[in-house]
Design a protein around this nucleic acid. Structure first.
Lengths: 195, 195
DNA sequence: GAGGAGTTAGTTATCGATCACTAACTTTGT
DNA sequence: ACAAAGTTAGTGATCGATAACTAACTCCTC
């Protein structure tokens, strides 16, 4: 369904792990081959170029993020769905902290137009999802209507991004989900219309 | 006072410009020399290593950010000082858009412990400044007291960071100060205690 | 079911390009 | 005349990528 072989998936996972632990500068074909336990040319049996590996990696993360949004329950209130969405994002990061690092390696993809566009789309996805839920919340009358919802989405998504960045920089040394929940609840408290 | 020669300042400015336009991957001694109009070894007359150039660049940005915070007027209310602070940050970015790019190249400094610590401190600086102003605002009774101010600082600083990132990614194609003001005012509207 | 043909996934060895950096020499300004 | 700031010419290391080859497995034909 994803169009990837098992071996291609292996390579992507190892690539993500390298980026997570050592930064994207350390993601070389050499290091990738070493961690996979094969030689460098063998990698080219599975991907035509390093750029293709990165593209597949970004596409994988993109699909994964879409899947998370799709899992968010339908019946709840928009604010509950917002809580659910970020809770699931935090859960994924806890299970696979490596994914966080990739999203903060934007700059590394600037050279390659295709990769730059993909990583940009990946970042925008979370913002768009947030904006959509906030629009729904306003339509439902769950949040105050006297503030721009795009500004709200910017603050919420930006705040969570900053939190994840600091968590990643700290070596994942604290409970992201707990801190994240605190930020989300603070946000909800600010925008919620008392019922 | 800064301990830098004129030539060292030239080099830092050109380095910042390269990072801004092409990303940190393109910041090589070769490209730096070419843009400066001299040969590569000449650079080593002014800095002992590439790492030293990056360290000096980060230190320069750090001093600059501190200077901006110090310029914020004293007499106003804490919320007005907050507005003033971010307004000055946006103004600096408008005058020198290159500085934005550097702060988003965190990952590039991960290899070098000294650089990593410096860039981390640079990012924390804005958050700390924001937190301090929010603490003051609460003490003055300007903002509601039922929300965690560290969460507030995370959302505000994170939101602004995200905004700046998108502005940079768009090739500085729109008015950052105007969009930034909108985010700040939305934030103020959320936290302000009606008087 | 035996045996060639083709495929898959690896190997060793090597390529040209580029990286940060250096030694030795020359030019320039005071 | 001397020091600062430039030059030419080169270093070893590492980058992504390729050529040539091989072991192991599958598939097709008779």
């Amino acid at each position: 369904m994803t169009g990837l072989t098992d071996r291609q998936r292996d390579i992507i996972q190892v690539a993500i792990r390298i980026i997570s632990r050592k930064g994207i500068q350390e993601l070389t074909i050499r290091n990738l081959a070493r961690d996979l336990g094969i030689t460098e040319p063998a990698i080219y049996r599975h991907f035509q170029s390093k750029s293709d590996i990165l593209a597949a990696m970004l596409e994988y993360l993109h699909r994964d993020t879409i899947a998370i949004f799709d899992q968010v329950q339908d019946g709840e209130s928009a604010l509950d769905r917002l809580r659910d969405y970020f809770s699931r994002l935090f859960e994924r990061l806890r299970e696979n902290p490596a994914t966080a690092a990739v999203v903060f390696s934007d700059e590394a993809f600037m050279n390659d137009d295709r990769l730059a566009a993909t990583v940009r789309a990946l970042v925008e996805l979370t913002i768009d999802n947030t904006t959509n839920l906030l629009t729904l919340a306003r339509e439902n009358g769950e949040i105050r209507a006297d503030v721009d919802e795009y500004d709200l989405a910017t603050m919420l998504a930006g705040g969570v991004r900053l939190l994840v960045r600091r968590w990643h920089m700290s070596g994942n040394g604290w409970d992201l989900a707990a801190q994240g929940r605190s930020v989300i609840e603070t946000f909800v408290k600010l925008v919620e219309v008392p019922r």
